[in-house]
Write a protein that binds this DNA or RNA. Structure first.
Lengths: 190, 190
DNA sequence: GGTCTATGTCTAATATTATTAGGCATAGAA
DNA sequence: TTCTATGCCTAATAATATTAGACATAGACC
């Protein structure tokens, strides 16, 4: 016995992602992936560098996917509308893919993820460029927006926001940001 | 052999917290705590309800401590200054106690933590009350501030903010929030 | 068509963790 | 001094990751 399944690294990653989507990141283990592929756990080491390697690879893939989603969200839109669209795309993706979002937060040393994640940051920077901010302001505004979106998404995912409509609060926050940027801009645009 | 050490639940929690502070939350395990106390792992079950129970207890304690810190931060201060003071206290605590902050994010069903954490939210609500917002606005503003602070703290802890002075960006974000609230308030205060 | 080789998969074994069961010894009360 | 509660222990089980090394199969090559 030792039927050759002919598995692929991509197969392993796909199976792992299915588990993450269906049962959450906590449920992900090499044993679970092996079971899903009808294979013994050690067999996975031919395709992936252990559990850490698997997590790292997933983080990179998922980050790239997230970046593309964000980039797509602002195509053909500009100004405040772009900020709003970007923000909603961010929240929607994080909300609908909690496991993947958690994965995307995984911190990796190699620059792979940074490159993958650069898509998201570049998109944001481009959107914010419309406000004619100084270099320092642009950096700070970008960080502020990221912090707000990330914070909202994670608090919401953790059910830590309390009762009431989160949608309304989210829109409020985005408006807060836009108005704040305008009020703080050294070179007003509107 | 079976020397009675006379350990206490508090001793166990304290030892665990030391590990969290020194080596990070990931390094926390019953085995590690037992080793630190020079005791066998199963002995801990007399004081704590397993690893989950330990984590839950730590989360409650740490959340209470965080709440007090925040409450203290705004004593005798009001208006924008209070928001700024609150924000800095939040960031400072989270930055200086990364392990504890991570613990405080642990999601617990029982209301214990909610009660403990209520201190933080109450403080924030009180600070924001100065802006004379409507009920809905106040809720949204509170969530926005929490999201921004939480997001900034976690991104910073994960080294995900990029190069440059984070201090400056943080101040910018807080100002953004304050200005935004003012701009959005139905009943202007200043 | 037959052989070679790379490699995907397996079994076996080890290590680390949490956890339960049940025994013993000690501290402090009666 | 005895009794009792309980703090700590050893032993054992289960789930996880991981390494080592054997083997069989698929596809390349002759």
């Amino acid at each position: 016995m030792a039927r050759k399944r002919g598995l692929d690294r991509a197969d392993v990653l796909a199976a792992a992602l299915t588990i993450v989507d269906d049962e959450g990141l906590d449920a992900l283990s090499l044993t679970a992936v092996a079971a899903a592929l009808d294979v013994q756990p050690p067999s996975l080491y031919s395709h992936v560098d252990g559990l850490h390697g698997l997590l790292d690879s997933l983080a990179v893939d998922v980050t790239a996917e997230f970046g593309e989603t964000l980039r797509d969200s602002v195509i053909g839109i500009s100004g405040d509308d772009a900020v709003v669209a970007f923000a909603h795309a961010y929240r929607n993706w994080a909300t609908r893919n909690p496991g993947r979002y958690e994965l995307s937060l995984r911190r990796i040393d190699p620059d792979e993820k940074r490159i993958a994640g650069r898509g998201a940051i570049q998109t944001m920077d481009r959107v914010l460029a419309a406000y004619g901010l100084s270099k320092g302001e642009a950096t700070s505004a970008g960080r502020s927006l990221r912090a707000a979106l990330h914070g909202f998404a994670t608090l919401e995912a953790a059910d830590s926001l309390g009762r009431g409509s989160n949608d309304e609060s989210f829109d409020y926050m985005v408006r807060l940001f836009i108005d704040g940027v305008r009020a703080n801009a050294s070179t007003p645009t509107a």
